[in-house]
Amino acid sequence: MDAKADVPMLAFDNAARVYGKGDKAVRALGPVTLEVMPGELVAIMGPSGSGKSTLLSLAGALDVPTEGRVCIHGKDLSQQSMAELAELRRRVIGFVFQDLNLLPGLTAIENVALPLELDGMKLSRARAAAAEALNGVKLSSMADRFPDDLSGGEQQRVAIARAHVGPRQLMLADEPTGALDSVTGELVMRLLRQQCDRGRTVVLVTHDAAHAAWADRVLYLRDGLLVAPVEAALPSSLAETAGRA
């Protein structure tokens, strides 16, 4: 999918997810209206139960809204067949989770190539794309190692490579730094930032403000709703004080 710069990569239009019916209905999310443009890194913060994971499930076409619409690069997900949704998940959307979900029986490069192979790509082409993705996360030298022989940070980098391998443009990351120490967590954030600077789009759910700060925009969810942004007068900049403006 070519990412046209003026079409949002991800759009929520009054989208809501309600579980159950009548008196027992529980509103997990929404209505939420949100646009994420190609190349943007957006962080979502909020307390447990505020709807962060529901938002990510809807964005990833893993779930459907009960009200409103969710569009990926202009395509309304509710208008897509199951096969089309599956194709979106294979070709457009990549996921990065806190628990890495790498397959222990496959090497790093095999793990990264897997989504392409499942999508019917020739083995040699899939491997070449996987090698390039691993290079992008500076893990070329570890390509033939199994997950168990990699540190937590290296495994997360493999997961990031797998999430953006091939043509995929939208990465959805759910607490990707949750299990990592601060230095490794920062490395992962630098990689996600780089992916956006190269034109990919990332939506990141995190409870860590220091990691959220790598984003272009930080949004807060509370009780399923986005908290309205406020104008905050910026305090005098440190760079000016230090003569670096």
Partner: peptide, 20 residues
């Protein structure tokens, strides 16, 4: 609280850009 948090987050983003 919301206003202070927004201001702190903006400062944090600015600091992070310097760090980058």
């Amino acid at each position: 609280i919301h206003k202070e948090r927004t201001a702190t987050m903006e400062r944090l983003q600015q600091l992070t850009r310097h760090k980058q």
